[in-house]
Design a protein around this nucleic acid. Structure first.
Length: 423
RNA sequence: GGAGAGGUGACCGAGAGGCCGAUGGUGCUCGCCUGGAAAGCGGGUGUAGUGAAAGCUACCGGGGGUUCGAAUCCCCCCCUCUCCGCCA
């Protein structure tokens, strides 16, 4: 959520900045609603002050017969207050709905552009493998090795689910452990294991609600949502809290499964592990002081890149343009891994600085040393990494002519010393 | 799922229609005292909205209601604890 005061005072500038994002945005009602709200507020508060004053007087008067007129008048005032409050509530509801639907203002340094075509590659790492044979896609490799079973997953659940077996399941688990160990032992993140079902307040805090409810799996009788990313429960760890400046930055990592409806992506990436209703992810989340968030995004991005470097998987880093940045983010870097089976780069991590957008929604603040007023923190997060996509990248990059797949050096200890997966 | 007890400021804990944004204590902080510290003494110490400011308004788990007036009474919901049931 944007700062209403900022929007009020910089309406034209905000509108201009927001126009560089994709999608339609109608802010025309804002100024009138904002005005109405303040008028109603002042009106009802004047009446409340009057009511409070007179009621105190009535309380002090022993002989109530002397104040019958006051009592009657206050009854009238109370009714007026009630009516004004109702109008105020309706205006505030409309205003909040409008405000909650406004995306974050892009970072000044984000490249301006209309779509992903205009994202800017800022660096790449590693050498793409040269194969003396035609590399296969991971779904073929995995099925032939008997470690991925999409057909039975379809039977059990439906489309966009995967069944891992044997070395496949082990490899997924090895990756989770490897990533968590790296981030906790080398990068200083605190491991967490949060709930996978969260309430509306949490989803609203990070920006999934109210706008993107249709992307979420929802449970019927208890009004909970399956998390689409660990960002939601982990960022909400500190919802409605005031942190000490000394604690910052707070850095958390979490492994969780993620659940997404993928509504609107019918027919896209229907094969393989790329786009699943359920997938595993290790997430990195930071809470920082405002002045530190740009630098912290850079280190978070490097922490995510480190996973690919250690796994020796070639990748590139892309600075998302204003038209491609997600709703809540101000700035986003995507890491894209090279997939030889499909001869393209695919997103494997998305690292974002949300600035105070989520913090305002979720009321996550901190108090500076000696300061009276608390301030909003900045929140950041990034995948470190999407586990399923990492596994498929290994299958495609480490595949051999005979159909086997070598295990990356750093994963061998996590695979019980296994050197390669074959039949 | 059943029965009971609770949810008050950073924390503990009073308050049971008006004198309560809330006694007291702990913590924190500033000052005095001290060679320094402890102890002691004195002051300060919630958040938000609105306003140029003084101030005003709201908030005692959440939402409704009764009343001139609600932390306090009534209704619904949520959460925590204890016991029983069930279960990993």
């Amino acid at each position: 959520m944007l700062d209403i005061k900022y929007l009020r005072d910089n309406f034209a500038a905000a509108q201009k900045a927001l126009a560089t994002r994709s999608g339609e945005l109608d802010l025309s009602g804002f100024q009138a609603l904002d005005q109405q709200r303040r008028e109603l507020l002042s009106e009802t508060e004047t009446l409340k002050a009057e009511k409070n004053k007179v009621s105190a007087l009535i309380g002090q008067t022993k002989d109530k017969s002397q104040v019958q007129g006051e009592i009657a008048r206050m009854k009238e005032v109370s009714a007026q207050i009630k009516e004004l409050d109702e109008r105020l509530r309706s205006v505030e509801e409309q205003l909040s709905e409008l405000l909650m639907g406004i995306p974050n203002i892009p970072h000044e340094q984000s490249p301006v552009g209309a779509s992903e075509e205009e994202n800017v590659e800022i660096r790449s790492w590693g050498d793409r493998p040269n194969f003396a044979f035609a590399p296969q896609a991971h779904w073929d490799i995995g099925e032939k090795l008997g470690i991925l079973d999409f057909e039975r997953a379809g039977k059990i659940s439906g489309a966009r689910f995967a069944l891992y077996t044997g070395a496949g399941a082990r490899l997924e688990r090895a990756l989770i452990n490897f990533m968590l160990d790296l981030h906790t032992e080398q990068h200083g993140y605190l491991e967490t294991l949060p709930p996978f079902l969260v309430n509306r307040a949490s989803m609203t805090g990070t920006g999934q609600l109210p706008k993107f409810e249709s992307d979420l799996f929802h449970t019927e009788e208890v009004d909970l949502f399956l998390i689409p990313t660990a960002e939601v429960p982990v960022t909400n760890i500190h919802r409605d809290e005031i942190l000490n400046e000394k604690q910052l930055p707070l850095c958390y990592t979490a492994y969780t499964p993620c659940f997404r409806k993928e509504a609107g992506s019918h027919g896209r990436d229907t094969r393989g592990l790329i786009r699943q209703h359920q997938f595993n992810k290790v997430e990195l989340v930071k809470f920082t002081r405002p002045e530190d968030s740009d630098a912290e995004l850079e280190t978070l991005l490097q922490n995510a890149e480190k996973v690919l470097q250690l796994l020796e998987l070639p990748y590139r880093v892309v600075d998302l343009c204003t038209g491609d940045i997600g709703f809540s983010a101000a700035r986003t870097f995507d890491i894209e891994v090279w997939l030889p089976g499909q001869e393209c780069y695919r997103e494997i991590s998305s690292c974002s600085n949300f600035r105070d957008f989520q913090a305002r929604r979720a009321a996550i603040r901190f108090r500076r040393e000696g300061a009276k007023k608390p301030e909003l923190v900045h929140t950041l997060n990034g995948s470190g990494l999407a586990v399923g996509r990492t596994l498929l990248a290994i299958l495609e990059n480490y595949q051999q002519a005979d159909g086997s797949v070598l295990i990356p050096e750093v994963l061998k200890p996590y695979m019980g010393g296994l050197e390669k997966i074959d039949n």
